[in-house]
């Protein structure tokens, strides 16, 4: 970046830089394919802008050093944390912040061993695999068990802390989990907390958002809803949200999978009649209303079978 730097007074074209990076394209797909998550998308846009501006600043000889991009993603299950992490890896790759742009998703079991001397090689191996990309640690608070001071998780944490500090050029770490537990985790691990530059909170989806998500999923799977089924799905979502085991988009995905089963079973039951393409595509209200969500009191516990 030396020698070829443009004169400081020449205006730099941020829009052109954005177009050239191809990031606006990715951001646009993000908007189109992911319902809601407005604060998350805003944060991603900010990070992209920061990296782009940093690039331009470098071109005119200004530098604050590469920014730290380790993040925490907090939110309930099914709020899109893993999906966003994948997109994040792609965006960071387009902006050349990471070299390869792959995502290595792990949990405590992948990092922490069962025996003395087992943990460090395991953690280091995962870290090496993630280099050039993003290391996504789901339910990161399980790494730390304050009640057990001989827990090997501590060893994994120490290695991670070191890597997050010294190898920032080589990988980005994203810690993910429920918000309250992550907050407690950070409170008792100030070292980890101080290395996380971006805390991103994933809100639960609202009724309309979940309905839109269902629409997108059905479109991808090449199904459609009958008019009655649409109403039924709306009601289903309302009831499902009230249940304790509700897991946002994941619950919707599961509900649709079960509706597909019932749809297939219904067609099978009516065997003998010629099947139209329409019938093969269309989910009816009965396919949805057969769910236990409708038959049981909303207060019952985990719904495990259809």
């Amino acid at each position: 970046m030396t020698g070829g730097a443009p004169p400081a007074d020449r205006p730099l074209d941020l829009a052109a830089a954005l177009a050239e990076s191809g990031v606006d394209e990715l951001l646009a797909t993000l908007d189109a394919e992911l319902v809601g998550l407005a604060p998350v998308k805003r944060r991603i846009r900010e990070i992209a802008a920061l990296l782009l501006v940093e690039k331009l600043r470098l071109q005119v000889g200004l530098s604050a050093g590469p920014p730290s991009l380790h993040m925490s993603f907090t939110g309930n299950p099914g709020t899109g944390k893993t999906t966003i992490a994948l997109r994040m890896a792609e965006i960071l790759h387009r902006l050349r912040y990471v070299r390869k742009g792959h995502l290595v998703a792990v949990t405590r079991d992948d990092l922490v061993g069962q025996f003395i001397g087992h943990t460090a090689p395991r953690t280091k191996e995962v870290v090496k695999r993630a280099m050039g990309g993003v290391l996504f640690i789901d339910e990161a608070y399980f790494l730390y068990r304050p009640e057990n001071e001989r827990d090997y998780g501590q060893e994994a944490m120490e290695i991670l802390l070191q890597v997050m500090e010294n190898d920032r050029d080589d990988l980005v770490v994203i810690l993910a989990g429920y918000k309250d537990r992550m907050d407690r985790f950070f409170a008792s691990n100030p070292g980890m907390s101080s290395r996380i530059a971006h805390h991103v909170d994933f809100p639960d989806y609202g009724q309309d958002e979940l309905y839109a998500i269902a629409g997108l999923m059905l479109e991808k799977m090449q199904y459609r809803l009958s008019d009655d089924a649409r109403t039924a799905l709306g009601e289903y979502i309302e009831r499902r949200r009230a249940r304790p085991s509700f897991a946002n988009a994941r619950s919707i995905r599961n509900a649709l999978d079960r509706a597909r089963l019932r749809h297939a079973d219904r067609l099978f039951g009516a065997a003998g009649e010629p099947l139209s393409r329409e019938a093969l595509m269309t989910i009816e209200a009965s396919d949805i209303r057969a769910s236990r969500v409708f038959s049981e009191a909303a207060a019952t516990a985990e719904e495990s079978t259809p």
């Binding site: 280099m131 990309g133 190898d167 080589d170």
Partner: peptide
């Protein structure tokens, strides 16, 4: 299964 040389360079 490494994707990037940095891991090997560390070793």
């Amino acid at each position: 299964d490494l994707r990037d040389a940095a891991g090997v360079m560390k070793e």
